[in-house]
Amino acid sequence: MQAIRFKKINSFNVVFLFVSSLLLLFIFAPILGIYIKTSTLDIFRASIDKEVHESIQLTLAISAISTLLFSILAIPFAYYLARHDFMFKSVLLGLINLPIVIPHTAAGIALLGFINRDTLVGKFGEMLGLNFIGTSAGIMIAMAFVSVPFLINAAYNGFKEVPERIENAAYTLGATKWQTFFKISLPLAWRSIVSGGVMMFARGISEFGAVVIIAYHPMTAPVLIYERFTSFGLKYSQPVAALFILISLIVLIMFLYTSRKNK
């Protein structure tokens, strides 16, 4: 690590350093603040509160399942995109990110219109015994909708970095497309895919807007925090928030670890 050196004190450096410090303060002050205001005991109490830890477990589990299930669709799709050129591909690549940029309540409304009992999808789900409204399945759909672009993008970039020549080399050595995909392309893109998956998972657990519209119950952690805040006030929501931020921090560290370039 190189130490920061103040070679010259000039107005430029001073202003930029000042602006940077302000921004860092802006990012970290509220998060640090919540831990200063909330006693460790309160956080501990929150963690053994049945409603709290159940909602956190639920949130983590649904997001994990949503990530795994949608990987099955997103990985082949990303590979296809990385290996084929077609008209309006760049437009499609841009539009994939639509769920990220639209207001998540709007995303929830759109989704609700798509999966409620009156629609084909809703009816089909009902036939399979799946009800999306107010259920874990619905929450999973909502989480996936707003977070799957992260996985698609990461997997796309991962596959793009695998040279086609290497796949061709495998083909000339007698490997089928399936064998080449599973033995060569997927392992080589794996790091990007995992990092995209962790990102998708992280985005899933933190989703509020789309989830709350599809299902207020069963309560995910972001919804529970919101409910504690509206029913009991700031003081009562802080321990749960602090606990959940801690969990998100762990996920963030996982993401940073998996997205490191060199192994």
Binding site: A169, A170, L173, A175, I184, P187
Partner: peptide, 20 residues
């Protein structure tokens, strides 16, 4: 014919070894 069925192996200029 598919590449896989030709029994013709190509050696690429940059070798294209499997890096993993």
């Amino acid at each position: 014919e598919n590449i896989q069925n030709r029994k013709i192996v190509m050696l690429f200029q940059d070798f294209a070894l499997f890096p993993h």
